[in-house]
Amino acid sequence: MNSYYVKLLFLYLIVSPGNRWHAVASWTWDAQDETCGICRMAFDGCCPDCKLPGDDCPLIWGACNHAFHLHCILKWVNSQTSQAHCPMCRREWQFKE
């Protein structure tokens, strides 16, 4: 019984450069929605103009808490002659602080 105990105490993960835990994860924009309201592409994907998702094609939230691909909403905002509105709720578009 005693010897058991010793052994079990020794059973652990050894922290050395060779011994590691390599884990796998996926990232997600935490956007409460699946797809971008402008391009209808997945948020975790990228807008039609981009090739790489993630840092290269970020999301942006408006003051109204609607999220879009940055590129999509910028295109939308720039195309508006007067004050731009959120494509989803028609409120005045303001980038969220």
Partner: peptide, 15 residues
């Protein structure tokens, strides 16, 4: 455990 133990692969699941 020290964070040195852990390495990770982070995927863009959609692709």
């Amino acid at each position: 455990l020290s964070v040195d133990t852990l390495t990770s692969t982070i995927l863009s699941t959609n692709f």
